[in-house]
Design a protein around this nucleic acid. Structure first.
Lengths: 246, 246
DNA sequence: CGATGCCTTGAGTGAATTCAACGCTTGTGG
DNA sequence: CCACAAGCGTTGAATTCACTCAAGGCATCG
């Protein structure tokens, strides 16, 4: 793939667009000093593979990615989604090798960092290191809510939660113009995130469409009523609190 | 509750017992300087509540705790378990207020720290801060595997995974003498961790017992064949890799 | 223009749930 | 000391949610 022109709706806002993306300036500025390259990948490509000890850590500049892991017979679970500004592969760097895979959902643009930069960050830029850990805490918070969803919410509630989450995260990065999720999310992705079969996922999404909360058209999801999704999910949404003073 | 005598099997090994517990010396030594007190709580008590901005962070010195969150109508999901040496409440401190609750599974002994010590740790003890983040990564790794389990493993596989996990973690802290999990885990806890009903959990555990992998007796779980659990779960177990050089 | 990927629908099956009840142990108050 | 309640585990039966199997429609692409 190549760099594509930005449209007026701010699809695929680059990381550099600080107005639209929730940049953590301290971390972004500091880590930028360690940048060793960039990488572009097509939608569907794997960014990192489970079991691999990658020499790199990435930041997602453009596009959307997802973390996933699978059982021996192929059953797949999507764990979480990454949006522009997010770090990719930090867990793997800290633990030695990847315990999950990461794949590109849309075409992605990544900045590449040497994994060895992490200890340096802690030594020379404590506030950036703090910001990194704060992000890890936010990610874990999302993971907690997803686990609650998969474990205890009904299929309808769970699907509403997921779409509300993706909508909320996409919006702040300019990836939800007019409510349309601007990345090729398939019903198989939804199924693999919620732990449901593709058939039942389809029926559940139809039910959300019947409630006029979403529409599934042109191979993608349009959020018609975000409030209704939150209501169906019984979820208040994530608060966007800033990082506490260092 | 009060401090109780330690038995020969090392039940309830205190944090001080470095031979039996996987202490991260750098972090433990450093954070100990900020200790402002200790707290003992009975089994069943809540340690931290969702929504609260606690002034404290804790380390679990003795006993077992679990993180959990619930939906409005009471459906509960257990997210993870904490064993001696683990930190409790760091996520809440970083994010402002708790996004989940934490409860004591067994009687617990905690050391109390002021939440404001965290930035100080990053400023003055970078290696300890690095160790803290490394632990967060390990915790997230467990959470990933649990999500895979709840979403994609069958009830039998999932139950085998959970008991193998608890056995593995209990063993290194001396909380699994002769294979018996030395804390009052009920079938309701198992159900709330796996996202199953109590009735189906009971039948699934009976099935594991019929396979001679476990026994459920005297209100507790005995692991008879840890290898068989791993095999049923289709899970290799967690590698106990040390923290990488700083 | 056949192949592929994605969405959709029907029908039958199976897994897991709810409802209900009972036994056993533990703790408590009369 | 006994009666009683409460907590936990167990079992049966009916129901429902979700799955598998199967097939077809509709785009897109080589």
């Amino acid at each position: 793939m190549d760099d594509r022109p930005q449209d007026a709706d701010c699809d695929g806002c680059p990381l550099e667009n600080r107005a639209a993306t929730p940049i953590d300036d301290v971390l972004a500025d500091e880590i930028a000093r360690y940048r060793v390259g960039a990488m572009n990948l097509d939608a569907g490509a794997e960014i990192l593979l489970e079991g691999v000890a990658s020499p790199h850590v990435y930041t997602l500049v453009q596009g959307v990615a997802f973390r996933h892991k699978s059982l021996a017979d192929g059953r797949r679970q999507i764990l979480s989604y990454a949006f522009p500004g997010d770090l990719i592969g930090v867990q793997g760097s800290l633990l030695g090798k990847m315990r999950h895979s990461v794949a590109a959902l849309a075409d992605v643009r990544l900045w590449v960092f040497d994994r060895s930069c992490l200890p340096g960050l802690f030594k020379t830029a404590p506030e950036a290191a703090f910001a990194l850990t704060w992000r890890a805490a936010k990610d874990e918070c999302v993971l907690d809510e997803t686990l609650l969803s998969v474990g205890r919410r009904t299929a309808l509630e769970s699907a509403a939660y997921l779409l509300a989450l993706l909508h909320q995260r996409a919006r702040v990065t300019g990836l939800a113009p007019k409510g349309r999720l601007a990345f090729p999310l398939t019903q198989q992705h939804v199924a693999d995130t919620l732990g449901l079969s593709i058939v039942h996922t389809n029926r559940t999404l139809k039910s959300l469409a019947a409630a006029r909360a979403i529409a599934w058209q042109d191979r993608g999801c349009v959020i018609l009523d975000g409030e209704k999704l939150l209501e169906i999910a019984g979820w208040p949404g994530f608060s966007q609190e800033p990082r506490p003073a260092f």
